[in-house]
């Protein structure tokens, strides 16, 4: 933690690291969605891992150390393994033969481009980061735990109920004879 803080203390290094991690995140995100070389879902899952890990790097640059660790453990660990297990269970050889429809591609590109333009315009006009002081916040485990177990105890307990419900639902859904 001390070493990271020292590294992040300088002004030039975090900026360069931001550009590196942002470029990695976006590049791997593109390769998840539209990989020109492979249409295999396993490739998409692997690039999703890379996206998530570089996003954890962005979280470290934002001094959210606990969330960076959780991101890697929960997403890159649990969620991706779940994805890979399901890909293994299903037989997805067929996917590579199918073409992406031109209409879907162009329509998707146009609508998504419009949304990007609108949101960037909105960002340019509102300019939310203009008058903010230099950030001091540290998202360490201690501070986050204090907040989570004092102010946010009730949501925390509700989330545990949600996880229980999800677990029961998954067990019921994966029974052999679904009624």
């Amino acid at each position: 933690m001390e070493a990271i803080n020292n590294l992040l203390g300088g002004s030039a290094v975090p900026d360069v690291l931001f550009y590196v991690f942002a470029a990695l995140t976006l590049l791997c995100g593109v390769l998840v969605v539209a990989n020109p070389f492979s249409r295999n879902p396993v490739t998409s899952a692997m690039f999703l891992v890379l996206t998530i890990i570089s996003m954890a790097g962005l979280f470290v640059l934002l001094h959210a150390f606990f969330l960076a660790a959780v991101q890697i453990i929960v997403y890159a660990g649990a969620v991706i393994v779940l994805f890979l297990f399901v890909i293994m269970l299903l037989d997805l050889k067929e996917e590579q033969r199918r073409k992406i429809k031109m209409f879907g591609f162009v329509g998707g590109l146009v609508s998504v481009g419009a949304i990007v333009v609108i949101s960037l315009k909105a960002l340019g006009t509102t300019n939310p980061g203009a008058n903010l002081p230099a950030p001091q916040l540290e998202g360490g485990t201690n501070a986050l735990g204090q907040l989570l177990f004092k102010q946010y105890v009730l949501p925390f307990e509700v989330v545990s109920v949600l996880l229980l419900v999800a677990m029961v639902g998954v067990i019921l859904l994966s029974k052999k004879d679904l009624k």
């Binding site: 998840v32 879902p41 399901v86 429809k101 879907g104 998707g108």
Partner: peptide
Amino acid sequence: FLLFALGLLGVVMRRNLLVIYM
């Protein structure tokens, strides 16, 4: 924003349920 747009593009464009989930 860009990452969100990429995800949206994937949902609109791809036809495989698993990739849509990713």
